[in-house]
Simulated assay, not measured.
Amino acid sequence: MTFLEKLDFLMKENDLNKKRLSDRAGIPYSTIDGFYKQGYANIKLSTFKKLCDYFGVTMDYLARDEIEKIEYYSPNKKDLYNPEEKELLEMYSQLNNSGREKILERGSELLELGYIEKGDAEKMA
């Protein structure tokens, strides 16, 4: 999958068009539109980082055509998600809206039942 195919996929998954992506990611609309009209071979590193940070994906995922499975990360954490978190995010990304709603409902139920990490229980009290 190419950079533009991945960008289209990520925008669709996040219900974004070029204008909304521009506003939310802090990238000029003309830059995003230019990827489609003039290509992206000379994308600035700062722009590329903003896209990766906004979508929470690795730079490798977005840059390398041979990587097709989404690699998530949190820009506020130095480490990638652990394997269990990655698996959950991958499953979530494959679900339709109804499936995603069910996952969120079940997650809320588990929290209400007390399935909380020990350190987090004190924060919630």
Rank of each mutant, 00 (worst) to 15 (best):
M1A: 11
T2S: 09
K6F: 02
L7C: 04
D8T: 02
F9W: 05
L10R: 01
M11L: 12
D15H: 10
L16G: 05
R20G: 05
R20N: 11
D23S: 07
R24M: 14
R24T: 06
A25Q: 04
Y29D: 03
S30W: 05
T31D: 06
I32C: 02
I32G: 01
I32R: 03
D33V: 01
G34W: 03
Y36S: 01
Y36P: 01
G39C: 01
K44R: 14
K44C: 01
S46P: 04
F48R: 03
F48N: 04
K49N: 12
K50P: 03
L51D: 09
L51P: 05
D53M: 03
D53A: 11
D53I: 04
Y54F: 15
Y54I: 04
F55A: 00
F55V: 04
G56W: 02
T58K: 00
T58S: 10
T58A: 01
M59Y: 09
Y61L: 06
Y61H: 05
A63P: 05
D65K: 05
D65E: 15
D65W: 00
E66M: 10
E66I: 12
E66K: 13
P75R: 00
N76D: 05
K77Q: 13
K77C: 10
P83V: 03
E84D: 10
K86E: 14
K86V: 06
L88S: 08
L89G: 02
L89I: 04
E90K: 11
Y92H: 10
Y92T: 10
Y92K: 08
S93C: 01
S93P: 03
Q94L: 10
Q94C: 07
L95K: 03
N97F: 00
S98N: 10
R100M: 06
E101A: 13
K102S: 02
K102D: 06
K102Q: 07
K102R: 03
I103K: 05
I103V: 15
I103R: 03
L104H: 06
L104Y: 05
E105D: 14
E105C: 06
E105K: 14
R106E: 08
R106F: 13
G107T: 15
S108W: 04
S108M: 08
E109K: 08
E109C: 02
L110F: 14
L110M: 14
L111F: 10
E112P: 00
E112K: 11
G114E: 08
G114S: 07
I116A: 10
E117G: 10
K118R: 13
G119D: 15
D120I: 14
D120L: 15
D120E: 15
A121R: 14
A121I: 10
E122I: 12
E122Y: 11
E122S: 10
K123N: 12
A125E: 07
